[in-house]
């Protein structure tokens, strides 16, 4: 190393990359510009407006318009137990739902990876919940499925002693999670199935010849192979599930009480029921900051997952 450091700093010999002219630079930048401008107008401008509002006292249902009230909106956000509870509830619901989608999705993917008559039909049927739009799914669950008096679920469970159970009133938290899992499990299953089908067949045959049982093969070879797929599934599933809004708005309205009030629904309520523009803007800013922190970790993991893929 010492020898290298003593070497005089000389310009590298040989051909150098040709410098790009300004015209060339713009010819590459220009096609991206409309998309960039559009993104700035629809996301960054509203964000700046939101920051401005977060320092204002502004109630839609009170006369007098808005006036500057410093950081008192923020002070209120950090002391509001509803806001903190909404964060905790969002995190626990997302974690439980994602874990369940991973476990059920993997189990179904393993079953679907086998050849059996009618596999195509079964696969399509399992994917179907993913294709139903969340609002429509929520309405179907809330009415025909879960209605205390006429619901299909109570009808099916009647032989087991279930009688006019009001699922969305008495078990709101669990029921919302079930609907979230129902909607997103197919997505997880598809990702895991893609992973299973990318596993080379001769490796599995080698394991058979090496005397491994089906369970050992799964634990020793398939799970490590699936790791990047599971990571990707967990990451995307978390992004989707953490923003769940439709089901909560249409099935429970965040209730009973605040039992199912997640962060997106909390913000919605603050604007649309409390008309508290300043307070909801402050809560929104805090949410964005928290999201950026979590997302930058997630994106780093994303990058790692894809690097791992390339290195294989």
């Amino acid at each position: 190393m010492a020898v290298l450091e003593q070497a005089p700093p000389t310009a590298p010999a040989g051909p150098r990359p040709r410098a790009m002219s300004a015209r060339e630079k713009w010819s590459r930048r220009l096609p991206l510009l409309p998309a960039l401008l559009y993104t700035i107008i629809v996301t960054q401008v509203p964000f700046l407006v939101m920051i401005w509002y977060s320092f204002q006292s502004y109630y839609w249902n009170e006369p007098g318009g808005s006036w500057f009230n410093g950081v008192s909106n923020y002070a209120h956000v950090f002391t509001d137990p509803d806001f903190l509870n909404a964060i905790v509830r969002t995190v626990t619901m997302t974690v439980i739902a994602v874990l369940l989608t991973v476990i059920i999705g993997t189990a179904l993917a393993v079953l679907l990876d086998r050849k059996f008559p009618g596999r195509g039909v079964v696969r399509t049927l399992i994917i179907t919940p993913f294709l139903v739009m969340p609002a429509a799914a929520a309405l179907i669950w809330q009415g025909p499925m879960l209605d205390p008096n006429f619901g299909l679920l109570n009808y099916l469970l009647a032989p087991f002693g279930v009688n006019h159970e009001a699922w969305l009133s008495n078990h709101a938290y669990g029921t919302v999670i079930v609907v979230m899992v129902w909607q997103w499990m197919p997505f997880m299953m598809l990702i895991v199935l893609a992973g299973l089908q990318s596993q080379p067949g001769d490796v599995l045959e080698a394991a058979k010849v090496d005397g491994a049982s089906a369970w050992s093969t799964f634990r020793e070879l398939t799970v490590p192979h699936l790791r990047p797929y599971l990571e990707l599934g967990i990451l995307l599933g978390t992004i989707y599930l953490v923003t769940t809004f439709d089901q909560i708005r249409l099935m429970t309205q965040g209730g009973p009480g605040t039992q199912t009030t997640t962060l997106p629904y909390y913000l919605y309520e603050k604007v649309n029921y409390a008309f508290d523009i300043g307070g909801s803007a402050a809560a929104g800013v805090v949410t964005v900051v928290l999201t950026i922190i979590v997302a930058s970790f997630a994106l780093r993991m994303f990058a790692r997952v894809f690097q791992f893929e390339e290195a294989r």
């Binding site: 001769d202 490796v203 080698a206 058979k208 010849v209 090496d210 005397g211």
Partner: peptide, 21 residues
């Protein structure tokens, strides 16, 4: 007899090494 009970060892064309091990 299933392969695991035949007491044989096989070398595959593409080697089929376990990538994670």
């Amino acid at each position: 007899t299933p392969p695991k009970d035949r007491d044989i060892a096989m070398v595959f064309q593409n080697y089929a090494l376990y990538p994670g091990k």
